[in-house]
Simulated scan of single mutants.
Amino acid sequence: MPNDTVNDFNHQVIEEFRANRGRVGGYFEGARLILLTTTGARTGAEHTTPVAYLPDGADRILVIASAGGAPWHPAWYHNLLAHPEVTVESGAFTYRARAEVLKGEERDQVFARAVETDAGWSEYQRKAGRVIPVVALYEIAGGPPNINAGSMGEAIKVVHDAFRRELALIREAMSAVTEGGSPLGAQLRVNCLTFCHGLHNHHTGEDLGLFPFLADRHPEAAPAVARLREEHERIAALVEALRTALDTADPATARAEVERLTRELEAHLTYEEEQLLPLLDA
């Protein structure tokens, strides 16, 4: 594909991604996607590229420098080798990150996990005739997260929708596993555990920050806040049940726990939005 065509395609995806806070259609529909902004190795100018990613626990995400199976590394990879500090846009959040290229056995294990979820990575590797690099992106700590929203209420909705999208992807992958009779893959387990960790952090932040704020500013919301706290405890129990199911590596049990968590969480998110967003955006 000519460079001008690639640039036009990327520009369209970037605009759609930002307008819809991470949700895009077309070629990337249903994919886990970030916008990765790197500093040019030669020019020093910033370049933003849509890149697929893999969840990988609490501290990092992973990106693969496949270039669609081309025999050369993509430009963004050369840029981060020269300037490892990058910017990541996830749709809900924007943050600075440190890039680290994985080596040896760790790289091979991660790439094998990627192939397990999508055989297209293996085809890219075959076509490329090179070892396709895998890069870990570690968020650089520095204050509260930068949520892509214009108000507190909008921020809550943006984060909730990000959880909804990720859970939908997990449910889709879990259904494919159970219907096909395949074992529970390593990357799918990582996706579930990463989701569980993110949800725990979100609810902890609400318990310690948002709910006390509302108690001080809006005492009339006390009954709703009390209910939300109780729901956090029930959801935490469901998260632990899912973690236990993942340890058993039984796809049917894990899928059942994902469905239980989905039902409880969706009801919780909807109630929270109904009760709190009008107060936060007043």
Results as ranks from 00 to 15, higher is better:
F211E: 01
R107K: 06
P84R: 09
K103H: 14
L242Y: 04
A155T: 02
G198I: 13
L228Y: 03
G69L: 06
L277W: 01
T48G: 07
L199E: 09
V110H: 00
E220M: 06
R229K: 14
A224G: 11
V24N: 02
D216I: 04
N3K: 06
L137D: 09
V110P: 01
I132H: 00
F195D: 02
M174G: 13
G57R: 03
L265R: 13
H202D: 11
E29P: 01
A112C: 02
I64Q: 09
L279Q: 03
A221G: 00
P223D: 04
E29K: 12
P212A: 09
E29A: 15
P2C: 06
R234P: 00
V115K: 09
D56C: 08
V13Q: 05
R260Y: 05
L35G: 07
T253C: 08
N3Y: 02
V86D: 14
E106A: 07
S122N: 07
A70Y: 08
P278A: 12
A173P: 00
A267P: 01
R21K: 15
G30M: 04
A136Q: 07
G142H: 10
E15M: 15
I235D: 00
R171E: 11
V88E: 03
T270G: 01
L246S: 06
G143N: 11
H268D: 02
E123W: 07
A82S: 11
A224L: 03
K103E: 14
E46M: 08
E16Y: 04
T248E: 15
V115P: 02
R18S: 05
V131D: 06
V225F: 05
E264H: 10
Q109S: 11
L269F: 15
N10P: 02
N10Y: 14
L214P: 00
E116Y: 02
L246I: 11
A222K: 12
H47A: 13
R260C: 09
E106P: 00
R255L: 08
R243W: 07
R229Q: 14
T87G: 03
S175T: 09
A249E: 13
P2I: 09
P183H: 11
I140E: 12
T43H: 14
H200W: 10
A58L: 11
G44R: 12
A92Y: 04
K127C: 03
D161I: 01
I170W: 01
A241S: 14
N148D: 07
M1W: 08
R98Y: 11
E231W: 04
L246R: 07
S151R: 08
E257Q: 13
A70M: 08
A254S: 09
P219Q: 13
R32I: 04
E273W: 04
A168H: 10
R42F: 05
E179S: 14
V134E: 02
V159C: 08
D207K: 13
H160G: 05
E272Q: 15
E179D: 15
P251L: 11
L238T: 06
A41R: 15
R18Y: 01
R98A: 14
R107W: 03
P84M: 10
C196A: 15
E15F: 05
L137K: 13
A65S: 10
T248K: 14
E105L: 11
L269Y: 11
A222E: 13
L210F: 04
A67F: 08
G142Q: 12
S122T: 01
A141P: 02
